[in-house]
Nucleic acid binder design. Sequence first.
DNA 1: AGAGATTCATAACGCAGGTTATAGACGAGA
DNA 2: TCTCGTCTATAACCTGCGTTATGAATCTCT
Lengths: 247, 247
Amino acid sequence: MTLLDSIVMQGLGRHGALTAEEKTLLLDLELNPRRAAAGEVLWQESADVDLFCVVKEGWAYSYRNLGNGSMQILKVYLPGDIIGMRDFGFARRLAGVAMINDGVISPFTHQQLFELIGRSPALAASIIATVVRQQAMLTERLVYLGRYAAHERLAHFLYELYLRLKRIGAVTDNGFVMPLSQEQVGDALGLSAVHVSRTFSMLRDEGLVVRDRQHVVLPDPQALARLVEFNDTYIDETLSPAFHGFH
Amino acid sequence: MTLLDSIVMQGLGRHGALTAEEKTLLLDLELNPRRAAAGEVLWQESADVDLFCVVKEGWAYSYRNLGNGSMQILKVYLPGDIIGMRDFGFARRLAGVAMINDGVISPFTHQQLFELIGRSPALAASIIATVVRQQAMLTERLVYLGRYAAHERLAHFLYELYLRLKRIGAVTDNGFVMPLSQEQVGDALGLSAVHVSRTFSMLRDEGLVVRDRQHVVLPDPQALARLVEFNDTYIDETLSPAFHGFH
DNA sequence: AGAGATTCATAACGCAGGTTATAGACGAGA
DNA sequence: TCTCGTCTATAACCTGCGTTATGAATCTCT
């Protein structure tokens, strides 16, 4: 079992120990890895829902192309994340998904997910919890889009990435690689690329974010966390006691 | 079985016929109805997660109070909706919930939900689909907050309410009761109350929305739908074929 | 190594929407 | 019926962010 396998298992299995069968069901999700190039569209909006994907390497994002020509990025996926759960239960994709940089993904079928649900109530509950957690991240983003200024949105975005990357060991010395262009960051935060640039400069001048191309360093993560009053419930969530003993 | 019971069943049972046991499990969710007054807080942010609620009468909303003193309303709940699924899997509430007007709610426990999942894989899948559908509505809101102007946000908001209310038979002659104040609408759309008022006036001048206090009429719903390019996939969703025969 | 394409920084300008203020309309309670 | 509080409309003013533009830095391809 690789490190990344264990990340997926950590995600779905953190609500209790997994049985051997459950582990097998989870490993089956990662049987067919393949490379995916930067910019590759994994699926378009409105495409048929056939597959989900585990991200094993690289970053991806889900997005909506809007009638007015702009794009809204909904979520950034990091290694260990499952892409496509958003569409579970729908016949058609509600959002497109594209790779940000080169990576490796492992597709699995709707059918596999159903089997997993049927065979293990514990995993079914975990999947619900996973979907709910993603919803919580979306909610957090929504709150920031609705009620916070540009510098707070950007600070929050960077700090969330920082925490998620730290969880998977992709942060060293408070620094990490951030392969998104400023245009893409703008599409995630509901800002223009120009204003993202301005805002990066502002955060730099305040000593909160040092950035050199794709390399980002947060010299004082705590200061950033204070700025955005970061609510990390949804990342390191305290699981409901009701989950314990539910197997 | 009342009309409203059937609305809840419609929501959770629409992916196939329900067995007698499944119907019982669903009806059990509505055994303990009680009145709730306008403004009553059903639970606060960060409270322990103990209960979920079926809304039987009245409107409610979930919200986050922010550090900068403002509020973001996340979702408006109408009769037949289940409140609290957002928090499933968490030990603490991620958002508060309050009643908008007087109504009747029916609380049920975490435990009941777990039982339901354990007893019926079909209902478990339906619950996942329900959560996902709510996520889709949240996503739609997010897109509008990120990338659309005030009049488009408001038009979208009203049209979404119109569709949801029509589904439960609460629309007559293209009109419905909308118990939210303009301040609350602003909190939902990330706008100031003043600008909501301005925007209502604008939509009125264009003949798209007629409003008198709490009564809203959309003289030409189709025109409004065109304005917002309404994507109704998530309301009258085409269900994934994979659901059929999954019991 | 050179050419073209991206990406980024910064400036100048305009506008959508926030803020504050004021007054009228309506609703609840005595 | 009067009063007080809440809700709404509209105006005046201000600012944060979008837009457009320009040049520099960096990547890609050959």
